[in-house]
Write a protein that binds this DNA or RNA. Structure first.
Length: 614
DNA sequence: GTAGGGTTAG
C-alpha cells in the first residue's frame, strides 16, 4: 500500500536534519481530518526551519524563536521544539534568553521541570541574565507538577537576587497554591499585591477556589474586599462567584450579584449570558432565569438556540412542561436536536411517554435527526413507565437506524432491567457490550452489582466488583453502598464492615444511604450497640440522618424489645420533622396492642408513602 | 515564552 501523500514521513525530523536540500512536498487541501492538517502545518514549519538553516547569512535567533513559538502554539509539539533548539546549538547559532525560555517552557510541559531547572543553570553559564518570564515559566512548571515548595523557593531566590516579581509571578504562584488546596497561603500572598488593577485575575482565582472548596461565604467576603480595594470584577469573577452561590442554593445573593453586574454595565456577550442563564436555570429558579432572559432581549441581544434550550430545560427541571412547550413553540430561532432532547426528557421525567414519543415523530417532520441521546432518553422514559420490552425494541431499532448505542444507553437499559429484577437479561446485555466495543463505566458496574445483590447473588456481585478494579475503574459511593447492602442482607456483616472501612480509607465518603444500610445490617444481626455507635458517628462526620435512617434504627430496637431506646429515637424523629413509615407504624401498633409498649402514636406523624428503601 | 471562568440534552 502506498503511504498517504498527506502524511509526512515518520522520520521527518531525521530527514530534514540530514538533508541539504528542501524537500519537495505537494499539498492536498481536500483533507478534512484535523490531525492531518496539523501534521501539514507542522511539516510546513519544519520545511521553513530547514530553509532558514541553509540561508546565508543565517537569520537571527529572533526569527528562529518566532518560528519555534508558532510550532509550540500549533499543537504543543514540545519535543519537536526541543530538538530544533538542540539543532540550532549544533549549528552554533547562539540561543538568547527567548530561546532558553522556550526550552524551559517545553520541558515543563513535558513534565521535566528538572531539565527546565538545568536550563536556568546554563543561562547563567552563558552569561545571560534570566528575566521575569524565565522565573515565571519555571514557577508555573513547578506548580503544575505539584511542587509548590520548590516554586516558593524559586520565588524567594528571585527576591534575594534582586529580580522584581511582576503580577504574573504572583498570579502564577497564587494559582499554584490554590490548585494544591493551600488557599490560605494564596490569600496571604494576595494581600501583598492587592490594589493592582491586574489583580482581578488573582482575586478571581482565589474566589473560584474558595467556591469550589465549599467556602462560598468566604468567597463572597473576598469579593466585597476586592471591590472595596477598587479592583473591578470582570465576567470571569462574576461567573465564578455566581457558580458558587448557585451551587449552594443562595438565591438572594445570586440575584443580588446579577443585579450588581448589570448595574456595572460590564459588557456581556451572548456566550457569557448563556453560561449565567444556565447556572440559574439548573437551580430551578425559573422566574429569575426568565427575567434574565427578558433583560438579555431588552439589551438588544439575540437569544440563540442554546439560550432557548437552556431556558426550556429550566422549565422542564421544575416539571413546568406546559411553559417549556410554549417556549418551544414560540422560539424565534431554529430548533436543534438538543431542543427536542430537552423537551423529550422533560416529558419522560413526568411519565408523559406519549408526548415524548409524539415529539420524536415530530423531529423527522422538522428535519432534525435524532441522535444517541434522543434514543437513550426515550429508552429511559419507556423503562420508567415499565415498558421494558418496548425499550428493548427501541434499543435495537436505533441501531437499525445507524445510531450506535454508547455506554449511557447500555447503562440505562441495564439499570432498568436490574431494577425490574430481570438481572439475567441485564447480564446478557452487559456481556454484549464487550462485543460492541463499548466499555462499561462505573455506573454500568454499579447497576449490575446492585441487581445481583438484590436477587441475593452476592458472590457474583463481588466478582463483578473485583472486575471493576481490574478495569482500573474507581468505585463511587453508590457502588460501595450497593455492595455493602448486599453483604448486609446476606448476613455477611464482617465483610460489609470491612468494605465500609476500606471505602473510607480509599477516600470515598459514605453518604446517608451507606450509613443507613450499615445501621440496618447491625440491627438485623442484633448488634444494636454498634448501630447506635454508627448513628452517632454519622452525625459527627457531618452526615445528617434522614427519615429512613430513623425508621431503620427504631425498627431495630423494637424488634429486639429495646423499647426505651426505640422511643428515644422516635422522639428524635419527630423533633427533626420526619415521618414513620408503614412498617415502623405496624410494629409500634403490634407492641402497643399487646401492652408491651406505652406510647401515644398520635404524637408522631405517619406517612404511608414513606418507603422502606433497603 | 508566564496568571483566572464558561458553551445548552441522556
Amino acid at each position: 500500500m502506498n503511504p498517504s501523500p498527506l502524511k509526512p514521513p515518520r522520520n521527518l525530523l531525521q530527514t530534514l536534519f540530514n538533508s541539504p536540500v528542501i524537500i519537495p512536498f505537494s499539498r492536498h487541501l481536500s483533507t478534512s481530518k484535523i490531525n492531518q492538517q496539523n501534521d501539514l502545518a507542522l511539516y510546513d514549519e519544519l520545511v521553513l526551519f530547514n530553509q532558514f538553516v541553509h540561508q546565508q547569512p543565517l537569520p537571527s535567533i529572533k526569527h528562529f524563536c518566532k518560528l519555534l513559538t508558532r510550532i509550540v502554539n500549533m499543537n504543543h509539539h514540545y519535543p519537536v521544539v526541543i530538538s530544533l533548539i538542540h539543532r540550532l546549538e549544533t549549528l552554533e547559532i547562539k540561543p538568547d534568553i527567548y530561546a532558553f525560555n522556550i526550552s524551559i517552557n517545553c520541558f515543563c510541559h513535558m513534565g521535566r521541570v528538572d531539565l527546565g531547572l538545568s536550563i536556568l543553570g546554563r543561562v547563567f553559564k552563558h552569561g545571560w541574565t534570566p528575566d521575569c518570564v524565565t522565573f515565571n515559566t519555571l514557577i508555573r512548571g513547578l506548580c503544575t507538577n505539584g511542587n509548590i515548595f520548590c516554586a516558593r523557593q524559586v520565588f524567594d531566590e528571585m527576591l534575594v537576587s534582586g529580580f522584581e516579581p511582576n503580577v504574573v509571578t504572583y498570579g502564577t504562584l497564587i494559582n499554584g497554591m490554590c490548585k494544591m488546596g493551600k488557599v490560605g497561603d494564596a490569600v496571604t500572598l494576595l494581600k501583598k499585591v492587592e490594589g493592582e488593577s491586574e489583580s482581578v485575575i488573582m482575586y478571581s482565582t482565589v474566589i473560584d477556589t474558595l467556591c469550589k472548596s465549599n467556602h462560598v461565604r468566604r468567597a463572597l467576603t473576598l469579593f466585597s474586599e476586592m471591590v472595596e480595594n477598587g479592583v473591578v470584577p470582570n465576567v470571569v469573577t462574576y461567573i465564578c462567584m455566581m457558580r458558587g452561590l448557585c451551587r449552594f442554593g443562595l438565591r438572594e445573593e445570586a440575584v443580588r450579584l446579577l443585579d450588581d453586574m448589570l448595574c456595572r454595565n460590564i459588557s456581556l456577550d451572548l456566550q457569557t449570558c448563556n453560561v449565567l442563564l444556565n447556572l440559574i436555570s439548573k437551580q430551578g429558579w425559573v422566574a429569575d432565569s426568565h427575567s434574565f432572559f427578558d433583560l438579555m432581549v431588552e439589551r438588544g441581544m439575540n437569544p440563540d438556540t442554546a439560550t432557548y434550550n437552556t431556558l426550556i430545560n429550566g422549565y422542564c427541571l421544575v416539571h413546568r412542561l406546559d411553559d417549556a412547550r410554549r417556549l418551544f413553540d414560540v422560539m424565534s430561532c431554529a430548533r436543534d436536536v438538543i431542543t427536542f432532547n430537552v423537551l423529550i426528557n422533560g416529558y419522560c421525567k413526568v411519565n408523559k411517554i406519549n408526548e415524548a414519543l409524539g415529539l420524536f415523530n415530530e423531529m423527522s417532520r422538522q428535519n432534525v435527526n435524532p441522535n444517541v441521546v434522543t434514543y437513550t432518553t426515550l429508552i429511559r422514559g419507556l423503562c420508567l413507565v415499565s415498558k421494558l420490552n418496548e425499550a428493548l425494541i427501541l434499543f435495537y431499532k436505533m441501531q437499525d437506524c445507524g445510531e450506535t448505542a454508547n455506554v449511557v444507553t447500555y447503562s440505562t437499559l441495564i439499570d432498568c432491567l436490574c431494577k425490574h429484577e430481570r438481572v439475567t437479561d441485564a447480564l446478557s446485555l452487559f456481556k454484549l457490550m464487550d462485543g460492541a466495543r463499548v466499555a462499561p463505566d462505573v455506573f454500568t458496574f454499579t447497576s449490575v452489582i446492585d441487581g445481583l445483590c438484590k436477587i441475593g447473588d452476592v458472590d457474583a456481585a463481588n466478582e463483578i466488583f473485583l472486575e471493576l478494579f481490574n478495569k482500573k475503574l474507581q468505585p463511587n459511593v453508590c457502588t460501595y453502598t450497593a455492595m455493602i447492602g448486599g453483604l448486609c442482607r446476606n448476613k455477611r456483616l464482617t465483610e460489609a464492615k470491612e468494605l465500609f472501612y476500606r471505602m473510607k480509607e480509599s477516600g470515598c465518603a459514605p453518604n446517608v444511604h451507606t450509613y443507613t444500610i450499615m445501621i440496618k445490617g447491625y440491627c438485623r444481626n442484633g448488634k444494636l450497640d454498634e448501630a447506635n455507635e454508627l448513628f452517632v458517628k454519622m452525625n459527627e462526620s457531618g452526615c445528617s440522618p434522614d427519615g429512613c435512617t430513623y425508621n431503620t434504627i427504631i425498627q431495630g430496637f423494637l424488634l429486639q424489645n429495646e423499647f426505651s431506646a426505640a422511643i428515644r429515637y422516635l422522639e428524635k424523629l419527630t423533633e427533626n420533622g420526619f415521618c414513620l413509615d408503614a412498617y415502623t407504624e405496624a410494629l409500634l401498633l403490634r407492641f402497643q396492642s399487646c401492652g408491651q409498649l406505652e406510647f401515644s402514636a398520635k404524637k408522631v406523624s405517619i406517612n404511608d408513602d414513606a418507603e422502606e428503601r433497603y
